[in-house]
């Protein structure tokens, strides 16, 4: 007992009232050393990440170049493409019309001069 005789401090408990979870001391050292190992491990990923913004910028620049080049060359093809679409749409409309006529009255087909 370390308090003075006149002290009204409670008596020394004589035991430690603080407990720890089961196995805490058995596992602590391993957990601690694993944390330190992780801290000390080289981080090559970080080196690669340092270049990531530049690689990204280069990719965007290259893609922009390729697309703009392709856009210039394909301007004619794009017009042709529109024309082809119109032709396909007209053909589809004609086919639908024949289908409709056949459904309503197949005999009517004979009146059409077609070469199919």
């Amino acid at each position: 007992m370390t308090s003075s005789p006149s002290s009204s401090l409670p008596p020394h408990p004589g035991h430690n009232p603080f407990r720890v979870p089961e196995g805490y001391f058995d596992t602590f050292a391993n957990r601690m050393m694993a944390r330190i190992a992780q801290l000390e491990a080289p981080t090559p990923v970080l080196h690669r990440l340092r270049w990531l913004p530049w690689i990204g910028a280069a990719c965007v620049a290259a893609l922009t170049l390729v697309l703009s080049h392709a856009g210039l060359n394909d301007s004619g093809t794009a017009l042709h493409g529109a024309s082809a679409y119109e032709e396909r749409a007209a053909a589809a409309y004609e086919e639908q019309m024949y289908d409709y006529l056949m459904t309503e009255n197949p005999q009517l087909l004979a009146e059409y001069e077609t070469d199919y």
Binding site: P10, P13, P17, F18, R19, V20, P21
Partner: peptide
């Protein structure tokens, strides 16, 4: 994780 009595 504290198993002291009331006084503790």
């Amino acid at each position: 994780y504290f198993d002291g009595d009331e006084t503790e």
